[in-house]
Every structure is written in structure tokens, then in C-alpha cells.
């Protein structure tokens, strides 16, 4: 055995030199040799690494038999256990790109092996994998191969050796969307003054934080008959049972809690309190219903204005909690509420 690190390569039927569109239906195969771009790729690793083999799969086959293809491909990769997995580049080829994207995502997430691929900015495969793989920015056609491969090889080399991959503009990959915390030479106030001066003089400047973009969800249809509806109560105000049994964080929450409130008329103190670290807790601790109004909902329930208050109430803390965590919580809680047949939800925030 050599002390070189192992690279495993993935290409489609075309780059695998099997054939064109007529061979796009071929099932995945493993070949213990360097084929197509894999050949040139090894030469770019400066003798530090070795491409041990190539997986070839037809683009149509992959897209029509995704699970079967992935099973074979992941199984093969697992057996060979490469240090880095490389796919493509797919340029602007849609089916090839989706295959590279799906495989890259699966390899990175399920096998925890670092992945490098290459795509054109508009390739539909990009969004599938860019958060977990390094996707090198390529031109839209195979003419860009000679430019793309050295960049991919350089990243692969770093990943195999465990060297930190630098920022996207330096390394040539498409930003993964990760906000990486780093040290810089100048303190923030000085950077702010310099940015301001550039702007005042009409010189170019770069913001350190592009504004977030939030997607839109269509409003769900209204409840037809409140008097028959089951209403669930949720809060991001951190109201938890005494002792905070699930240890929900006071800020930057990593989890949510679900508590049985059947037979409870209110979220009274001291049975409940807030663990939220982002606001003055005195008023909520006096009367937790000021944050999560179970008492009022019960009144409406007794009056028959609503059918029923759902037996469980859901809670977490909103302060400093990342949007992606909040999303994850919403998805999990929503699934439960849907399964329980809840008709409508009140979510309170502090």
C-alpha cells in the first residue's frame, strides 16, 4: 500500500466513455481504474493522492432509479472507504448535475466523507448539495474542464489532508451559505468607519452581512367552525414547567418542549415560569398566562366559542435561536399537530 490518500471518482456514461444519450440508461458500475476526468485529476494531486477507481452511472438511470442507484453507489463507496469523493464536474448538464448533487449530499451526510464536485451556477443540482459539499464554480460547458479540474483537485487535496479550506472567492467554490466566525486584523468600529468613508466618497465597499431573504408560505385556509375546532397553544416565550424538566436553553434554543395541559385551567405560577433569557421575566413569572394565555382559551372552551384546547402545549425560547432551528422546530411541531388533527394554532412570541 502506498501512503497516498485515496480518491474515488464519479462520472456519467458520457464522461465515463461508455457512450452518449443511447447509454444514459446504464446501471451504475464500479471500475478499479481511472476513467475520463479521473485520469487527469490524479496528475493534479502532485503525487500526494491516488484515484483508486471510478463509478459510472447513466444519467437517466440515476434519475429514474434514484434509490437503487444510490444504494449501489453508497455501498461501493463504503467498501472502498476513500479519503475524498469527487463527482463531475457536471457544468450545466441538468440530469448529470442532479445525480452529482444527490450523490454528493448522500456521501457527505451519510458516510461523512468530504466531497468535491463542480457545477455551473444555474445547475439544478447545485442547491441539492452546496451546503454539504464543495461545489467548484465552472463554466456552462465541458470546455471548462481544464480550468475546473485543478481547482477541484486543490480543494480535494486540502480535504484529504485535513487542511482547512479557505473562503470561496479564494478557493473557487460556490459559497455554501455558512457564516463562519473569524478573526480579522481591525476592530469592528474601524471597519465600520472605513466602510462609511468609502461609501461617502462613492468608492466600492463590501458589506460584511448581505441581508437575509425569507421565503413566503401561502396562508392556510380558515377554520370553518370555531365551535368545533381544536386549537393548540404554542409559545416562543420560554414558558416551562417548574424545574424546566427538558432543560430548554434560556437563549439560542436547541430544543422545544411539549407538556400535558389537559385538566389544567391555567399555566399558574409557580408550576410554570419562563426560562427565556431575552426579556424581563418578572411579569411572566407572576402570571405565565400573560405569555401563553391558556386561561383565556379555557374560558372560550367553556363558553363553547371554540371546540377544544389541544391537550399539549408546545414551548421554546426565541431569543438568539437561529432561523434554521426555529424552522426545524416548526416542522417537527407541525407534523405532530397535523397528526393530532389540530385545526388551528395560536403562537405567541415575546
Amino acid at each position: 500500500m502506498s501512503d497516498k490518500y485515496k480518491v474515488l471518482y464519479y462520472v456519467n456514461q458520457f464522461f465515463g466513455q461508455v457512450g452518449g444519450e443511447d447509454k444514459a440508461g446504464m446501471a451504475p458500475e464500479y471500475r478499479g481504474e481511472k476513467i475520463g476526468p479521473a485520469l487527469g485529476f490524479e496528475g493534479l494531486l502532485n503525487k500526494n493522492g491516488e484515484v483508486v477507481g471510478t463509478i459510472i452511472c447513466g444519467d437517466n438511470y440515476f434519475n429514474e432509479n434514484k434509490e437503487k442507484a444510490l444504494d449501489f453507489i453508497l455501498g461501493t463507496i463504503k467498501d472502498i472507504a476513500p479519503d475524498v469523493f469527487v463527482a463531475g464536474p457536471a457544468f450545466n448538464a441538468g440530469r448529470y448535475g442532479v445525480a452529482c448533487g444527490e450523490i454528493s449530499k448522500a456521501v457527505a451526510e451519510k458516510l461523512n466523507i468530504p466531497v468535491v464536485t463542480g457545477m455551473y451556477m444555474e445547475n439544478p443540482g447545485l442547491d441539492i448539495c452546496k451546503e454539504v459539499a464543495y461545489v467548484v464554480r465552472t463554466s456552462d460547458s465541458a470546455g471548462g474542464m481544464r480550468k475546473a479540474l485543478p481547482i477541484m483537485a486543490q480543494i480535494a487535496d486540502k480535504l484529504a489532508k485535513g487542511i482547512e479550506v479557505g473562503p470561496p472567492e479564494e478557493e473557487g467554490y460556490i459559497p455554501r451559505g455558512m457564516r463562519k466566525t473569524i478573526f480579522v486584523e481591525k476592530r469592528g468600529s474601524q471597519r465600520a468607519v472605513e466602510m462609511l468613508l468609502a461609501r461617502l466618497k462613492g468608492q466600492p465597499f463590501t458589506t460584511e452581512m448581505p441581508m437575509p431573504v425569507f421565503d413566503i408560505v401561502e396562508p392556510a385556509p380558515a377554520i370553518k367552525d370555531l365551535s368545533k375546532a381544536t386549537i393548540a397553544l404554542c409559545t416562543s416565550g420560554g414558558i416551562v414547567p417548574e424545574g424546566n424538566p427538558d432543560h430548554i436553553q434560556s437563549a439560542s434554543a436547541q430544543k422545544w418542549g411539549k407538556y400535558d395541559i389537559a385538566g389544567r385551567d391555567a399555566l399558574n405560577a409557580p408550576d410554570f415560569y419562563t426560562t427565556h433569557g431575552g426579556y424581563d421575566p418578572v411579569y411572566a413569572n407572576e402570571i405565565p398566562d400573560r405569555v401563553a394565555p391558556l386561561d383565556i382559551l379555557r374560558e372560550f372552551e367553556k363558553e363553547g366559542y371554540i371546540g377544544k384546547v389541544y391537550d399539549f402545549f408546545y414551548t421554546t425560547t426565541g431569543t438568539g435561536t437561529s432561523v434554521s432551528k426555529a424552522k426545524e422546530f416548526g416542522t417537527q411541531i407541525g407534523a405532530e399537530l397535523k397528526a393530532a388533527g389540530v385545526d388551528g394554532v395560536i403562537l405567541t412570541s415575546t
Binding site: R179, T181, M195, F205, T207, M209, M211, Q254, S324
Partner: peptide
């Protein structure tokens, strides 16, 4: 920024297209 432990989340709770010069 509150970008989550993995840094993959939106950095702010709100957004405005006018905010073009920001130090983080």
C-alpha cells in the same frame, strides 16, 4: 449574527434591502 451553531442560518431576525453597509 444569530446564524446557528453550524453558521448555516439566517443571521438576522428581520431584513431590509436598504441595509447595504453592515459590519458584523
Amino acid at each position: 449574527e444569530c446564524a446557528g451553531r453550524d453558521g448555516m442560518s439566517q443571521p438576522l431576525a428581520d431584513t431590509a434591502q436598504e441595509a447595504v453597509a453592515v459590519v458584523s
